[in-house]
Structure formats: C-alpha cells, structure tokens
Amino acid sequence: MPTDAPSPPLIRARGLTKRFGSFTAVDAIDFDVAPGEAFGFLGPNGAGKTSTMRMIGCTSPASGGTLTVLDMDPATRGPEIRGHLGVVPQQDTLDEELTVRENLVIYGRYFGLSRAECGRRADELLEFAQLTERRDSRVEPLSGGMKRRLTIARALINEPDVMLLDEPTTGLDPQARHLLWDRLYRLKQRGVTLVLTTHYMDEAEQLCDRLVIMDKARIVAEGSPRQLIEQYSTREVAELRFPVGVQETLDGQLAGLADRIEHLPDRLLLYANDGEAVAVAVHDRGLRPETVLVRRSTLEDVFLRLTGRTLVE
C-alpha cells in the first residue's frame, strides 16, 4: 500500500509480523507513513495496534518482515532511532517520584541534552501542555487529563520527528479529550508527524489524514477517513430502534429500503444515500420504530461493514 506522497516514507513496513510464542499479534502488515502526516491505526482492543507501535518505537523486536524507521533498521540502530521519536505509551509511565517539571528535565537528559537546554524546553512545554501552574507539584495527584498532557509534553522534549501516540485519549472525559486533540492538532500544524492508535472512530476522524483499519492482527482497509467512508459505506445511515422483542419479528419487512441493513442487538442500521427518505419509507410501510436517527456514515460503519463487529464492545 504505497502512499501518494512524493517524499520517501518516514516509516515503512513490509510483511511486519509479531509473534508471542504461538500467538500472532501482528500478521504480515504493510504500511508507509509519510513525513508530516497524521497516520492512524484504528481497531478494537487486541487488534495488534500496540504491538505495532512498540516495534516502531524500537522497544519490541519484530518477529518477521521488514521495518525501517527514519531509514534505519530498529534491530541495529534502536538508540539512534529512539533519539528522534516521541513516545506516548498507552499507560502513563510518568516518574511518580519526581515533580512535573523534573519529569521533563530528566527526560531531556536521557536524550543527552544539556541541563540548561532541558530547563528551557521544560518551561516551554509546560506552557504548551497548560501545566505551568503545576510545575512543582508531584505527578501522583494530577488528573488523568493532566497526566496525559504531561506525557505528551515529555515526549516532545527531544523535538521528535515522529510522535507515537498509543491510545492517547483512552480513559479521559470528553472535555479533557478535546483539550488533548487541540494540542495534537497544533503539533500537526507545526509539521510533526503523528502516528496514533485508537479504538475511537471520532478520534481517528478528527486527527488522522490517513489510517489503516486493523482487525485480528491484520490490516483490512487503508485510506483517508473520507475515502474509507465513501468506499465502504453509504453517505447516510438511518438508525431504527424498535420496542424490545419487535426487531426479531421484522423479517423481510424492510427489504429493498436500503443499500444494506445491519442488525445490531439493540437497533437496525439502514445504509442509504438519503437517510430521511428511508425513514419516510419505513413509516409508509406501517412500521413504528421507537426512535429514528438519521446521520452521516462514520468510520464505525466502515468497521462494521468490514468486520461485522463494532469497534468498542
């Protein structure tokens, strides 16, 4: 799946595989990440996203295939590659024995920066992460959103060429998520390449220029959010919710109303270019759903189409 981008890829994987004993976490995947783009791995938990990120981050050796990061081989030049990466792991790994600012300063030291430079960058990043007021606080009492922002600030201390973000907003409340997205969007505008994993389709749509959908260790689709929706779904969806027990008795009564119908446990999804028209047609057939919601297709619908399952279960 080569990209259309003219510049050579920053990250390139061919047949990349990760096995843990007899279990295959990542099964021969191919992808390229171009400089400056925001690239996403979208998929449910256990799809192999984190294993892929750890291989890119040079903290987990590949079991097969080839991987180059910044034109280097992680197997032989791990430390050098890591010097150019900013890693935001799924679970916070902040140093709880240190203060907010010390976390940034010492992290810069790990990258070999001078103390003065670390201090300068730390103050700048505290500002960026909106944590200046908490600079001398211990890490432990910070809220989940603050810890994530600090983790992102820490990952920026070496001015990385690529940011690896593994589930950056999982577990955060909506307000904290939006604040984080805003910060990531600013990074993207500065030209930082973002590689992120998520199982939230709205996050993928908000942040990713391009993404791959992963399921069961494999890549099942690739493209921009819009391309994927155009290719695998209709423009709109009518969601019908019937009283308990009714949905199972509708056999055939909806036939021909939509391009495609998905049966979820609690509702029916009718895919069509004009959702309103579908809703009207349902009514005309004498069917009385409890609620009708017409909306645009999302990546969630793409995922459902490709795998027969929902993303967040």
Partner: peptide, 14 residues
C-alpha cells in the same frame, strides 16, 4: 510498579 524503566527505554538509553 512505577514503570520507570519502560519510559526510560523509549529514549536512546538501553
């Protein structure tokens, strides 16, 4: 418990 080393291994340190 602190995952201190995990975070350090994401830097050039081995």
């Amino acid at each position: 418990f602190n995952r201190t080393f995990q975070s350090i291994l994401a830097t050039p340190l081995s």
